[in-house]
């Protein structure tokens, strides 16, 4: 009882340190296993990408930067991995200046690993300002709206960017994926996917994911990858379950940290009731005196 009451007064910095220790265990031992449970929204997202015809392109609309790299990065990597393996063309547009370089790096690392080629299998449209005209333009005239790729090559130069062959407007887009750390979903929905009847997938940070379920229910979203956990589940579906990836390590670390936090909440509540009981007992003794 006394211990529980004393735990109530523990320095918050010790709790921070304990959380760090708990989180570090999976990072040190690198367990390879991925989640065996794959949620329906991740399954749906996989199915949408898997069924995109080879003559169409998937647009990765990326609105994230370094501050959420460890949530949105694994999502981007998992989707790119799937599309590069399957031979599905994709183009990335970044609405964040720093995110443009990060997504480009992810693509570059994966193309080396999977022996693919920039300009042939995928393209990066670079950083663009997120305005309604740009979102609408992707559906009406993609090459004219994006004009150049990340390196300044014109999208109409098919000798350097054969990946753009036959890609003109929304009829040549197989799906749109919104990978976002901010409230960009509704703009994409309003100006790009709904008017052009394009399937939209969503990869939000965990904070934003709860509010997105209503769009899944109304089928405005065809699938969703919830933070790094969603990315780990997606990796299970593309056959990476026996490999150690950033998403799988994050999932393990999250699981241990969540168990630890639940234990702390229980201890905190027990301590609270114990201290109340002790205060009542002391009050009673004082009255008796």
């Amino acid at each position: 009882m006394d211990l529980l009451i004393k735990l109530q007064k523990i320095d918050r910095r010790i709790i921070y340190a304990l959380v760090v220790v708990v989180l570090m265990l999976p990072l040190i031992f690198h367990p390879a296993g991925h989640p065996t449970l794959v949620t329906p929204e991740v399954h749906d997202a996989f199915d949408v990408i898997d069924q995109v015809p080879k003559d169409k392109m998937v647009i990765l609309s990326s609105a994230w930067g370094p501050s959420t790299e460890y949530e949105n990065g694994p999502q981007t990597a998992a989707l790119m991995h799937h599309m590069l393996l399957k031979g599905i063309r994709f183009g990335i547009v970044s609405w964040d200046p720093q995110g443009a370089q990060l997504t480009y790096n992810i693509g570059n690392n994966l193309q080396t690993e999977l022996h693919k080629q920039y300009g042939v299998d995928w393209v990066h449209f670079g950083y663009k300002v997120l305005i309604e005209a740009a979102l609408r333009g992707i559906g009406t005239n993609l090459p004219k709206t994006m004009e150049t790729d990340m390196n300044g090559t014109r999208l109409t130069d098919l000798s350097k960017l054969p990946v753009m062959k036959g890609i003109r407007d929304s009829r040549d887009i197989g799906a749109v994926v919104e990978i976002s750390a901010s409230g960009t979903l509704e703009g994409t929905m309003t100006y790009m996917t709904q008017p052009n009847n394009l399937p939209l997938l969503y990869c939000p940070t965990a904070v934003m994911s709860v509010e997105a379920y209503r769009y899944l229910d109304s089928r405005q979203l065809k699938g969703m990858l919830n933070s790094a956990v969603g990315a780990a589940q997606y990796e299970t579906l593309i056959g990476l379950s026996s490999f150690t990836t950033p998403a799988s390590v994050t999932t393990w670390a999250l699981s241990t940290a969540h168990i630890f936090i639940i234990v702390l909440i229980l201890l905190g509540n027990l301590g609270y009731f114990a201290s109340k009981k002790a205060a009542r007992r002391q009050g009673g003794e004082a009255n008796n005196d």
Binding site: I28, S67, E71, T205, V207, V210, S227, V249, L254
Partner: peptide, 27 residues
């Protein structure tokens, strides 16, 4: 209950970011 779910997801998101930095520091 809905707000609790949002808060739980927020904890998960913030921990993920911390994991990212710890992973960088450690590995």
């Amino acid at each position: 209950i809905g707000f609790g779910a949002i808060f739980g997801a927020t904890v998960m998101g913030r921990l993920t970011l911390l994991i990212g930095r710890l992973n960088f520091l450690l590995n």
